[in-house]
Design a protein around this nucleic acid. Structure first.
Length: 535
RNA sequence: GGGCCCGUAGCUCAGUUGGAUAGAGCGCCGGACUUCGAAUCCGUAGGUCGCACGUUCGAGUCGUGCCGGGCUCACCA
């Protein structure tokens, strides 16, 4: 049982004995910022003081008295402090149970809270137009979206990773015209695509190929290859054209019409999105009869809702304005708009040694994600993209990220994992075999470095849960850095094998090392970063 | 002008439902290898949490108003 539930149970019982009624619904237990405040702390006396009309310190004193008369397991001391906090000082034995928990559950079972209960979720991310290579900004959305998918999978959801292809429309036409122009050795049209990549693609294209279809396939191949380089593999590449072919777009329009969600004005067909929180109504079909991008998009989301109970969209900051209209449309189609989660990722500023890298020059060229991966490596790219909250703008300095040095957290973390493996290899070499966890005397782990590691491992399940619910993989990378620091400290101060270390202590420490390896590999897997055995 | 995001140490950034003296990495300075990898570890210094008011036992966190930066406000995609 989680130590907090254990303490909560004791607190509820003490509250009852103290004559407090009704009992508070939630009892907060947290780790105090300062060690001298004990291992766990609750503000329950402060929280209820108003409703019971008593001084918080007085309530606290009474609770401490009741609890101290019959202290819960693992508890060494209970104190009242400050305005009415109740601090629990615990014996290390509570941490020793963590060791058993981790080893027993293993990499599959530990820190895998069942939040999804087998529900289906569709995570759509990147969805860059299939007419040019993926760039640095897409890279952030790519690594982020994939990590969200990994978190969901770990937390009991059934996940589909999806990429939406805008494979029709004027942009694709312009792309095809530009490619054809390059093939003829001419400059693309003014409103076409001018990047150097088109010169290369034109050179590859057979003379008799259809520029639209060939170019589309080429771009798709480029997307697949680039994303595969950072370990991202999609379950579904969804084509916009397929919506046209299947009649889904017309069906969607008819559906909206039947729900009185559209109206005609100035020869165009509009969505009454203002009825559901949007700030203006939106055109679905232009007066020239063409669809705007919105109608196929609505049809697409309608399709996704048929295939999954929950949708997550990862969109770039430049698309935040579309959230309201899409939610409005889904709501009008009878879906629960809360089941559509749209996460916005802020922009990435690509730098090189502190100097901004031009994202788009006259040629229309951008630094492609492909080049970035080739330059810094897939692990450094992923870890860097995921180290910080996507709510804030990111500076991605290529020279900093590719440095294999201390100021690069990915190496710090991976090195920690490699060191663990090195210890395990050393043990094997010395003929030391790890005994079953039931035969390990965990109570020997009393060094501060050891208990720090155990505390860190204890926190992982909660970190995973928060990261999943808040769509915040950076919580996982933050944990990995702390865990790495704890590991390096342990490595420095606590020998696992060697003179002066008893066989029993070696076994306990080997188990701790293995538990740490499990924890670290869980975190790195959620980030999609390799856990190297040596570097 | 409206909407969304951001403003925390010299730099890059954390900070779960409001909790006790606000953290980490890098950088600076000074230390530590005779056993598992020194790509490591330990220590010092560094702050009006953009500003102001409010809510309360308590605010980096919540509310309002400002200031500054980014993105966005099409019958373009």
């Amino acid at each position: 049982m989680d130590i907090r539930d254990h303490l909560r149970t004791a607190l509820r019982s003490a509250l009852t004995d103290a004559g407090i009624s009704p009992l508070p619904g939630e009892i907060a237990l947290e780790r105090p910022a300062r060690r001298e405040h004990g291992d766990w702390s609750t503000n329950v006396a402060l929280a209820i003081s108003k409703s019971v009309g008593r001084n918080p310190r007085e309530i606290g004193r009474q609770l401490v008295e009741i609890l101290s008369a019959n202290p819960p397991a693992h508890v060494d001391a209970i104190e009242i402090a400050g305005p009415g906090f109740i601090n629990f000082r615990l014996a290390d034995t509570w941490l020793h149970e963590v060791l058993t928990d981790v080893i027993t559950a293993g990499a599959e079972g530990y820190a895998a809270p069942d939040l999804g209960h087998g529900r289906t979720v569709n995570v759509e991310f990147v969805s860059a137009n299939p007419n040019k290579p993926i760039h640095a900004g897409h890279g952030r959305g790519a690594c982020y979206g994939d990590s969200l998918a990994r978190l969901r999978e770990r937390c009991g959801w059934v996940v589909t990773r999806e990429f939406y292809l805008n494979d029709r429309g004027v942009q694709m036409q312009r792309f095809a015209e530009s490619l054809a122009a390059r093939k003829r050795g001419e400059e693309p049209p003014e409103d076409g695509y001018h990047g150097d990549y088109l010169v290369e693609w034109a050179a590859e294209m057979p003379d008799d190929a259809d520029p639209f279809e060939w170019g589309y396939a080429r771009a798709l191949q480029s997307h697949r290859e680039t994303l595969a380089k950072v370990g991202i593999v999609y379950d579904n590449w969804f084509s916009e054209r397929s919506l046209l072919a299947s009649g889904a777009i017309e069906d969607t329009l008819a559906d909206l019409r039947s729900k009185d969600a559209v109206f005609e004005q100035d020869g165009a067909i509009w969505l009454r999105s203002t009825d559901r929180g949007d700030d203006k109504d939106r055109v679905l079909v232009k007066s020239d009869g063409d669809y705007t991008y919105l109608l196929p998009d609505i049809a697409y989301h309608r399709d996704k809702f048929r295939r999954a109970g929950h949708l997550v969209n990862v969109w770039g900051a430049d698309h935040h304005g579309y959230v309201a209209r899409m939610k409005a449309a889904m709501s009008m189609l009878g879906h629960d708009a809360d089941e559509l989660e749209v996460v916005i990722t802020q922009l990435v500023d690509l730098m090189r040694s502190g100097e901004p890298v031009k994202m788009s020059g006259r040629s229309g060229d951008m630094i492609s994600l492909d080049e970035i991966i080739d330059e810094v490596g897939p692990d450094a790219a992923r870890f860097t993209y995921l180290i910080q909250s996507v709510d804030s703008r990111q500076t991605f300095d290529l020279d900093e990220v590719k440095k294999q040095a201390m100021d690069n957290p990915v190496f710090y973390v991976q090195y920690a994992h490699a060191r663990i493996c090195s210890i395990e290899a050393k043990a094997a070499e010395a003929g030391v075999k790890r005994v079953p966890i039931s035969e390990v005397d965990a109570s020997l782990l009393v060094h501060e470095r050891e208990t720090d590691l155990l505390r860190s491992l204890f926190e992982l399940p909660e970190i995973v849960e928060i990261a999943c619910t808040d769509n915040a993989p950076h919580r996982v990378s933050g944990w990995a850095r702390e865990q790495a620091a704890a590991l390096h400290g342990f490595y420095h101060d606590c020998y696992v094998i060697g003179e002066g270390v008893s066989a029993e202590l070696t076994q306990a420490r080997l188990a701790l090392v293995e538990a740490s390896r499990i924890g670290m590999s869980i975190a790195l897997d959620l980030l999609g970063v390799a856990a190297p055995e040596s570097m």
